[in-house]
């Protein structure tokens, strides 16, 4: 890691500590939930980052289908993986929040269900990709699958309005339905999580690039060895044979 990357990691770490202070100490407790409302700062930020990651994946998928650039496929793979990590965090923190507040780890609420479906859809995408050989076909299949699976993302956003839901909708098109200090903590947390996301995306794309460089060099060497081997097999045994 160069000094710029180390500086970025230190900066994000420092902002993370400030976020912890704001979320766990500075922000006020809620009238009914008390201190449990503080889970919101991690749960909502994780959920937003997961949705942003799948939006990035969708953009990369469309970009790949239009341009067939390897760079788009690398971003697509990275965004899907990070999106899955953050969706898992959202589901787990949501369950931990639901238990003391709703008295249940899980309910088949529209927003929860559509989020779980999104998670399963992209797990399927990763498994499908892993089952195919390297190549252009694999990238095309992943891109098309992502475009189709992405339809669930707007559905998650609209689920609390389309169906009857017990999931709170504290931040919507009309603004923040909470005190200013809580809204500030939430937005600060979101900015920190977004910076972490950018860092993760950079690390994952770099990994994919290195992996492909290795695969390409091995492939080139394999082709060269095959060509040399074939030339050796088809070459005349003596110079005289060749002249004949």
């Amino acid at each position: 890691m160069n000094w710029v990357s180390k500086g970025c990691v230190c900066l994000v770490g420092l902002l993370g500590l400030i976020d912890l202070y704001l979320a766990l100490i500075w922000s006020p407790p809620e009238a009914q939930m008390g201190d449990l409302v503080r889970i919101m700062y991690f749960h909502v930020a994780s959920a937003w980052i997961a949705l942003i990651s799948f939006c990035v994946a969708f953009g990369a998928a469309v970009g790949y289908l239009l341009t067939r650039r390897q760079r788009c496929d690398m971003v697509l793979v990275a965004a899907i993986e990070i999106g899955l990590v953050y969706t898992a965090l959202t589901l787990v923190t949501g369950a931990l929040w639901a238990k003391p507040v709703w008295n249940a780890w899980w309910t088949w609420d529209p927003r929860l269900t559509t989020t779980l479906i999104l998670w399963f859809l992209f797990i399927g995408c990763v498994l499908l990709r892993a089952s195919m050989e390297d190549g252009r076909r694999r990238a095309v299949v992943t891109a098309v699958y992502t475009v189709v699976a992405f339809l669930d993302v707007p559905l998650i956003h609209l689920s609390v309005r389309l169906w009857r839901s017990i999931h709170p909708d504290l931040v919507n098109d009309t603004g923040f339905h909470m005190p200013g200090s809580m809204a500030f903590t939430l937005m600060f947390g979101f900015v920190v999580f977004f910076l972490v996301y950018v860092l993760l995306l950079y690390l994952r794309v770099r990994l994919e690039w290195t992996r492909r460089t290795l695969a390409r060099m091995r492939g080139q060497a394999g082709v060269r060895e095959t060509l040399v081997g074939e030339a050796y097999r088809t070459a005349p045994s003596t110079p005289m044979d060749g002249r004949r």
Partner: peptide, 19 residues
């Protein structure tokens, strides 16, 4: 509640660090 909150916090940041 605070113990529970720290556990959730550890889960989120610990999970990110593990990744």
């Amino acid at each position: 509640q605070l113990g529970y909150l720290w556990a959730v916090t550890l889960l989120v940041w610990g999970g990110t660090c593990l990744y």
